[in-house]
Simulated scan of single mutants.
Amino acid sequence: MKYIKTILRILLGAALLYAGIGHLTWLRQEFTAQVPQWMPLGTDLVVVLSGIVEIVLGASLIFLYKRKHIVGWTAALFFIAVFPGNISQYINEVDAFGLDSDRARLIRLFFQPVLVLWALWSTGACKKRV
């Protein structure tokens, strides 16, 4: 079980690194579409800052083994913090990432809790208090 958790933690870290780099480069326009209109910061700034956070979280999930439970809680909180963007994409019917129907955007909403649980379980964060 320990090896499965380690592999899943590293995979989540790699996915966050990929997404974070995408925020800053080739996926920037797609991520821009997810920023809610009510955000007080500029849309591009939100995309850049969230990309930087994803890169830091991804690298931390991979390399900060001794502090992995803290990183797990931080990643879970990040996934919760960006969830309004997913809701906004659904409510405002914004096409991005190939999600070009209400059904596809709705189904995506159910994956955010999976990411939260993945971050907590793969890092053992549920067993340790921060």
Rank of each mutant, 00 (worst) to 15 (best):
8 L>V: 13
9 R>L: 01
9 R>Q: 10
10 I>T: 03
11 L>N: 01
12 L>P: 03
12 L>D: 03
13 G>P: 10
13 G>M: 11
13 G>S: 11
14 A>D: 00
14 A>M: 14
14 A>E: 00
15 A>W: 12
15 A>P: 00
16 L>Y: 07
17 L>H: 05
18 Y>S: 06
18 Y>C: 03
19 A>Y: 00
20 G>V: 02
21 I>H: 01
21 I>L: 14
21 I>N: 01
22 G>V: 02
22 G>T: 07
22 G>P: 06
23 H>E: 08
23 H>C: 05
24 L>F: 11
24 L>S: 09
26 W>Q: 08
26 W>F: 15
27 L>E: 13
27 L>T: 08
28 R>H: 14
29 Q>C: 01
30 E>H: 05
30 E>C: 03
31 F>M: 12
31 F>G: 00
32 T>C: 10
34 Q>P: 00
35 V>W: 02
37 Q>G: 08
38 W>I: 13
38 W>T: 11
39 M>N: 11
39 M>T: 09
39 M>Y: 06
40 P>A: 03
41 L>G: 00
41 L>D: 07
41 L>I: 09
42 G>Q: 12
42 G>E: 10
43 T>W: 02
44 D>G: 07
45 L>V: 15
45 L>M: 14
47 V>T: 09
48 V>G: 02
49 L>Y: 09
49 L>F: 13
49 L>W: 12
50 S>W: 00
50 S>H: 02
52 I>K: 04
53 V>P: 08
54 E>M: 15
54 E>R: 14
54 E>W: 05
55 I>C: 10
55 I>A: 03
56 V>K: 00
56 V>Q: 05
57 L>M: 12
58 G>D: 04
59 A>V: 11
61 L>K: 01
66 K>C: 01
66 K>P: 00
66 K>L: 06
68 K>F: 05
68 K>R: 14
69 H>L: 06
69 H>D: 14
70 I>V: 14
71 V>L: 08
71 V>S: 04
71 V>D: 07
72 G>R: 04
73 W>P: 00
73 W>H: 08
74 T>H: 00
75 A>I: 08
75 A>F: 04
76 A>G: 05
76 A>I: 04
77 L>V: 14
78 F>C: 04
81 A>W: 11
81 A>P: 03
82 V>W: 09
82 V>E: 12
84 P>W: 10
84 P>G: 11
87 I>G: 03
88 S>K: 07
89 Q>C: 02
90 Y>P: 00
91 I>R: 09
91 I>F: 06
92 N>W: 09
93 E>H: 13
94 V>L: 10
94 V>D: 03
95 D>A: 13
99 L>F: 06
99 L>A: 09
102 D>T: 15
102 D>V: 03
103 R>W: 12
103 R>H: 11
103 R>G: 07
103 R>T: 13
103 R>D: 09
104 A>P: 01
104 A>L: 15
105 R>N: 10
105 R>Y: 07
105 R>F: 03
105 R>D: 05
105 R>T: 03
106 L>C: 04
106 L>M: 13
106 L>W: 12
107 I>G: 02
108 R>A: 14
109 L>D: 09
109 L>R: 13
109 L>C: 08
109 L>V: 11
110 F>R: 04
111 F>Y: 15
111 F>E: 12
111 F>K: 12
112 Q>A: 10
113 P>K: 13
115 L>D: 05
115 L>Q: 08
115 L>T: 12
